[in-house]
Simulated assay, not measured.
Amino acid sequence: MGNFSLMHWIVVALVILVLFGRGKISETMGDFGKGVKSFRKGLSEDEHSQDTPPAAKDARLTGPVVEPVKDQQNTRV
């Protein structure tokens, strides 16, 4: 009972095709492929972000340093 022959797998595949249809299976596999592709892209982006030193990350995120503007109306000459 533990081993399935090739004929069993063919019957299982035909039942799945009848239940879901060829279009639904190909759509599902396409979505699965897109998910794997985006997962791999996310992993490679994380690896690249770990290569940059932390100081470069902080400088890139904080932006330029801006000095506060003094109020010129209240100054006396």
Score class of each variant (00 low, 15 high):
Met1Phe: 01
Gly2Asp: 08
Asn3Phe: 13
Phe4Ile: 10
Phe4Ala: 15
Ser5Phe: 10
Ser5Lys: 15
Leu6Phe: 10
Met7Ile: 12
Met7Arg: 15
His8Ser: 07
Trp9Gly: 02
Trp9Thr: 03
Trp9Phe: 09
Ile10His: 06
Ile10Gly: 02
Ile10Gln: 11
Ile10Val: 10
Ile10Ser: 07
Val12Leu: 14
Leu14Tyr: 07
Val15Phe: 05
Val15Ile: 13
Val15Gly: 07
Ile16Thr: 08
Leu17His: 03
Leu17Pro: 00
Leu17Lys: 03
Val18Thr: 07
Val18Cys: 04
Val18Asp: 04
Val18Trp: 03
Phe20Gly: 03
Phe20Ile: 06
Gly21Met: 03
Gly23Ile: 04
Gly23Lys: 11
Gly23Cys: 02
Gly23Trp: 05
Gly23Asp: 11
Lys24Asn: 08
Ile25Ser: 01
Ile25Lys: 00
Ile25Gln: 02
Ile25Gly: 01
Ser26Asp: 02
Glu27Gln: 01
Glu27Gly: 00
Glu27Phe: 00
Met29Gln: 07
Gly30Thr: 05
Gly30His: 01
Phe32Ala: 11
Phe32Asn: 08
Gly33Cys: 05
Lys34Pro: 01
Lys34His: 08
Val36Met: 09
Val36Lys: 05
Lys37Leu: 05
Lys37Trp: 00
Lys37Arg: 06
Ser38Lys: 12
Ser38Thr: 13
Phe39Trp: 10
Phe39Asn: 06
Phe39Arg: 09
Arg40Met: 15
Arg40Glu: 13
Gly42Met: 12
Ser44Glu: 14
Ser44Gln: 13
Asp46Cys: 07
Asp46Lys: 13
Glu47Leu: 14
Glu47His: 08
Glu47Ser: 12
His48Met: 15
His48Asn: 14
Ser49Val: 10
Gln50Trp: 10
Gln50Glu: 14
Gln50Leu: 13
Asp51Ile: 09
Asp51Leu: 13
Thr52Asp: 03
Thr52Phe: 05
Pro54Val: 00
Pro54Met: 02
Ala55Asp: 02
Ala55Cys: 00
Lys57Glu: 02
Asp58Gly: 03
Arg60Leu: 09
Arg60Asp: 05
Leu61Val: 05
Thr62Asn: 08
Thr62Ser: 09
Gly63Tyr: 01
Gly63Cys: 02
Pro64Gly: 04
Pro64Cys: 02
Pro64Thr: 05
Val66Leu: 09
Val66Ile: 13
Val66Glu: 08
Pro68Ser: 07
Val69Ser: 06
Gln72Ala: 10
Gln72Met: 09
Gln72Ile: 07
Asn74Leu: 10
Asn74Pro: 01
Asn74Lys: 13
Asn74Trp: 06
Asn74Gln: 14
Thr75Ser: 12
Thr75Pro: 01
Val77His: 08
